[in-house]
Amino acid sequence: MRLWRVPFDTNEIEVSKGIIHIIEDRCKGCGFCIEFCPREVLEFSDNFNIKGYYPPKVVKPDACVNCHYCEIICPEFAIYSIEDINHAVNSKNQKQDIN
């Protein structure tokens, strides 16, 4: 992620990491989660589900920051994320990305 200015508390902020779960057979393939994921974690899958729609698949699992936006915008209750408690991304790594 590129920022046009570095916030003062960058060193203190710990970015959370999420694990995405997809209930594929509920998906109707609207693509809202794929289009509006702020970290572009998702993409259409190559395989169709039981209803013949193409559900999303996770292509950048490490980029997910557990923001839950896919969970809110999904009209089908087919995707959600839970926090990865074993993995706390240190903000120092983040800062190197910014610089």
């Binding site: 698949k57 996770v58 087919a78």
Partner: peptide
């Protein structure tokens, strides 16, 4: 497919 699961409880 890593990081996703097929049947979970939303």
């Amino acid at each position: 497919m890593k990081n996703s699961s097929l049947s979970n409880k939303h």
